[in-house]
Design a binder for these strands. Structure first.
Lengths: 144, 144
DNA sequence: TTGATTTTTGGAATCATTCTAAAAAGATGG
DNA sequence: CCATCTTTTTAGAATGATTCCAAAAATCAA
């Protein structure tokens, strides 16, 4: 499965906008993230990317992920001291970490909630980003 | 400056409740956290603790911090991939990370906001903990 | 005090991530 | 297409916060 016309354009545009080049590796890594939106770690992305591109190196996967985050196409999700996870969902959303399965779910954040969140900041604090994450028992542990 | 009567009681009670022992090291580390509520890292706690107890080891500081977190007296605050920070403020609150100074501020969270937060979770998700953090330019960078 | 259990300790080990420096690939201007 | 300049990739080494280890010390209960 290849990057859709649309995703491919979005990628090269975002790269060029940030003064970076479009490469096979970056396309492939982006593709992997779009294929399965299950918040993989860098290691998992590495494994999946190698299926299509067996010679890619782990360092490159880290580089590509960093690049994608920098040019705004991907969000890096950190939780406790666990390895970073990567998520191509750019809509404002929170994350739910299931303590039983380790799975991470995207939780939609209505814009009125977003507003009330930044409202808690006292005078003089100017938030660029807001991170909201939950930890607990999620949906149905056994299945997908 | 010694642990106040009250704090000392709270500590040993919390420890006993969790089946753990009260030790000089644990008291001292707790004390350090209470003295300056500026969200120190383990290294910083180590440095401060050694001023009163020069022979304590870094491993012990990590152990003590973990113990304090486990028995519910201290909150471990993680942000991006930076070293963990420790905070003895148990009231529900968010954290603001200043990108300019690296300083971390506690932000009070009104209970109605807390409620609306857990309200965003779909059926079947049961949150044990909620983490909210902001990143941006905070108050007056030079002083305080 | 005695013995059982927990804690402390210094140093080694772990492990995600970053760095390094050389090779490869992509862009640019003729 | 060629020469050149810049960016990217790559393998492996280095980093750094944290955890693990096994022995010594401290605490607890009887």
């Amino acid at each position: 499965m290849n990057l859709s016309e649309h995703a491919s354009k979005a990628l090269s545009q975002a790269l060029v906008r940030s003064g970076m080049r479009s490469t096979r590796q970056r396309e492939q890594v982006f593709q992997v993230l779009l294929n399965r939106r299950d918040h993989p770690t860098a290691d998992e992305v590495y494994a999946r990317t190698r299926m299509e591109m067996p010679t890619i190196s782990l360092a490159t996967v880290y580089n590509c992920l960093e690049t994608l985050v920098e040019c705004g196409l991907v969000r890096q999700v950190n939780w406790e001291r666990e390895p970073s996870r990567y998520c191509p969902n750019l809509a404002p959303h929170a994350h739910f970490h299931c303590v039983e399965t380790g799975r991470v779910y995207d939780i939609d954040l209505p814009s009125d909630i977003m507003k009330s969140l930044t409202g808690v900041l006292p005078e003089g604090f100017d938030a660029e980003t807001v991170e909201l994450s939950f930890r607990g028992k999620g949906k149905c542990p056994p299945s997908g």
